[in-house]
Amino acid sequence: MKRIITFGEIMMRLNPEGYLRFVQAEKFEATYAGGEANVAVSLANYGLDAAFVTKLPAHEIGQSAINELRRYGVDTSSIVRGGERLGIYFVEKGASQRASKVIYDRAASAISKATAVDFDWEKIFDGADWFHFTGITPALGGEMPAICLTACQAAKRLGLTVSCDLNYRKKLWTREEAGKVMGELMPYVDVCIANEEDAKDVFGIAAENTDLNTGKISQDGYISVARQLTERFGCQKVAITLRGSISASDNEWAGMLYSEGKASFSPKYLVHIVDRVGGGDSFGGGLIYALLSGYDDQKAINFAVAASCLKHSVEHDFNLMSVSEVESLAGGNASGRVQR
């Protein structure tokens, strides 16, 4: 069985019930999630050996986050305990023309205060095949950029495939900071994952003839983005999600996988959104599963996009779909009819 190590921050997610606004909320639903943790849950649901690495406080709230990961079969044995707090983020789900909103309360979280001695990467990577992190992890500051670099260097030295979702977060760092740090990490990355904006925000590589506000997407523009990322950093593959925003409730959803000078595009889905947070992570989890399963590029991008399409129908961050459900959609069964 293939083993995947993911590394990053898991937080408590608090959101009002249904589509209530923050100012209307009298109580909040509490769940746990984070970019790399979401990927680990997807991969565990697909039957792979997925481990999540982080640092969490040694109190009951930290334990609750671990328990949630264990519930879905994620290996938590390499999680370090220490620090004083678990990060929190608040989600207000948008609808129609009202956008979703996210408010972070994650300053001084345990993982952001981690030090290099917290993680023995030789031990963590023992028996592993793949290492995944996102641009959110080094953006946490402190020693995290250096820790990510050490992890990437160890992964490459030990023969692991390294994937990174650029995941630029303007509330965590500036474009200049992101460009400098990610520019040092990307030469170790075999599979780069990005959305329509990440490459532009982090590296100044923009897709031509594309307007994200109107939902206009240019395939040729994103082929150029992928080619430039490949040429600059030596990535073996670049995957880009293509979201056409009709409204907060309805999106067009597709993706592209680029390697060896060739681009493969998935079918386009019209998605009615239940919860879009974690959609990109479900794409990453689907892509990693597909590539580890030996799928060719076309089948891999079809699987990844179908997985993410289905995630938009699931409440909260984790993608709780099975391989057979994803394969059914990727195979063309998009009717949504009751399964009896």
Rank of each mutant, 00 (worst) to 15 (best):
E176A: 14
E176T: 14
E177P: 12
A178G: 15
K180Q: 15
K180C: 04
V181L: 08
V181A: 12
V181C: 10
M182Y: 14
G183C: 05
E184Q: 14
L185C: 03
L185F: 09
L185I: 04
M186G: 03
M186C: 12
P187H: 03
P187C: 01
V189C: 06
D190G: 09
D190M: 05
D190E: 04
V191M: 12
V191G: 06
V191L: 15
V191P: 10
V191F: 14
C192W: 07
C192R: 13
C192V: 15
I193D: 06
I193A: 11
A194H: 07
N195T: 04
N195C: 07
E196S: 03
E196R: 10
E197Y: 06
D198C: 08
D198Y: 06
A199W: 05
K200L: 04
K200D: 07
K200W: 09
D201Q: 10
D201C: 05
F203P: 08
I205C: 03
A207I: 00
A207P: 07
E208N: 03
E208H: 10
E208A: 03
N209I: 01
N209Q: 07
N209G: 00
N209R: 12
D211T: 00
D211E: 11
L212Y: 05
L212V: 12
N213G: 13
T214V: 01
T214A: 02
T214S: 15
T214D: 03
T214W: 06
G215D: 01
K216S: 01
K216L: 04
K216T: 02
I217M: 08
I217F: 06
S218I: 00
S218Q: 08
Q219C: 00
D220P: 02
D220C: 00
I223L: 00
I223W: 03
S224P: 04
V225Y: 09
A226W: 09
R227P: 04
T230I: 00
T230Q: 13
E231H: 11
R232Y: 10
R232G: 04
R232L: 08
F233W: 15
F233A: 10
F233V: 02
G234R: 11
C235Q: 15
C235A: 14
Q236L: 11
K237P: 05
V238Q: 13
V238H: 15
V238S: 09
A239Y: 13
I240W: 14
I240L: 06
L242E: 04
L242H: 08
R243F: 08
R243N: 09
R243C: 02
G244L: 06
G244W: 12
S245F: 12
S245H: 15
S245L: 11
S245C: 14
I246G: 08
S247A: 02
S247P: 07
S247R: 11
S247I: 00
A248M: 03
A248R: 11
S249V: 02
D250N: 15
N251K: 10
E252V: 02
E252D: 14
W253E: 05
G255E: 10
G255C: 02
G255F: 07
G255V: 01
M256Q: 04
M256Y: 11
